[in-house]
């Protein structure tokens, strides 16, 4: 059986951000990765706090929560919520597109052509609006001190 020959990844990590005329969706893809990595990092720390510290009893738990209840951690938590809202809704958009929803019916390639990006764009815009609305709701809660 012939061995699979890998193509050289010549752009490396910089290709994530720039490799020519990237469209909006490509930058959403980059943001999807960055928020995913950020959420994973946070999840590991969160898991440590809610397992290692929680199992040691009330005193350690209360001391941990007291340490975390300050403005910087609250701002950090808001950023985590924002990253989650973005990652979840952008992920939903990607799944819908992967399954063929919201792409319209196939049409013959007659001028003026409608490329895939233009067909996907309304869903992209709708998701961005929804993301902004949800982030505003969480920001409201953050701002009135409910954290």
């Amino acid at each position: 059986m012939a061995e699979i020959r890998h193509r050289k990844n010549s752009l490396g990590i910089t290709g994530w951000a720039w490799a020519g005329k990237y469209k909006l969706e490509r930058y959403l893809y980059l943001l999807h990765r960055l928020t995913g990595l950020g959420l994973m990092l946070f999840a590991m720390m969160h898991l440590t706090a809610t397992t290692v510290f929680r199992i040691q009893g009330q005193e350690i738990w209360t001391a941990t929560m007291d340490l975390l209840h300050n403005l910087w951690f609250k701002v950090g938590e808001f950023l985590v919520v924002t990253a989650f809202v973005f990652h979840a809704l952008n992920g939903l958009r990607l799944v819908l597109q992967e399954l063929g929803f919201a792409l319209g019916k196939p049409v013959p390639p007659i001028y003026p052509y409608q490329d895939a990006i233009r067909k996907k764009r309304p869903l992209t815009i709708a998701m961005i609006v929804l993301i902004i609305l949800l982030v505003i709701v969480f920001f409201y809660d953050f701002n009135v001190g409910g954290w």
Partner: peptide, 23 residues
Amino acid sequence: IITGALVGILLTIHMVVMHLDAI
């Protein structure tokens, strides 16, 4: 895809319960 959808549902419950205190 499947775990993404499930995490989305479960994490939404967690986020709403833990981070929408005022509302």
